[in-house]
């Protein structure tokens, strides 16, 4: 059993990558460049993007990340929770009090 990298904790705010990769990715287009909140870790797996290119990478933590629909689509009062590899995410610094 591989161990996770666990860079983020539930409640952390993260921004998703906005890059449009040339090949396979599991970061859906609608969720790119958006800010969401870590719900919880969802296991640990090699990055699907690498596996699709025949590369063997080490496992990294995958997270349920929740987005407000308005932040993704400009409208809507629901949330969308997407499952994202750590590589897709960068921390969003909280504003200083």
């Amino acid at each position: 059993m591989t161990t996770g990298t666990d860079r983020f904790a539930p409640g952390d705010r993260v921004r998703t990558r906005s890059l449009d990769p040339a090949g396979h990715t599991r970061l859906p287009r609608y969720a790119r460049g958006a800010v969401g909140v870590i719900v919880e870790p969802a296991g640990s797996h090699p990055l699907a993007d690498d596996r699709a290119r025949g590369r063997v990478g080490s496992a990294q933590t995958v997270y349920h990340v929740r987005f407000a629909a308005a932040d993704l689509f400009g409208a809507g009062d629901h949330t969308v929770t997407v499952e994202l590899w750590e590589d897709y995410l960068t921390p969003v610094e909280e504003d200083a009090p």
């Binding site: 969720a31 296991g43 699907a48 349920h64 629901h78 949330t79 969308v80 929770t81």
Partner: peptide, 12 residues
């Protein structure tokens, strides 16, 4: 009623 959509984009 709050609506929550789950996208099975990875391994779960």
């Amino acid at each position: 009623t709050r609506l929550s959509v789950w996208d099975a984009s990875a391994e779960s």
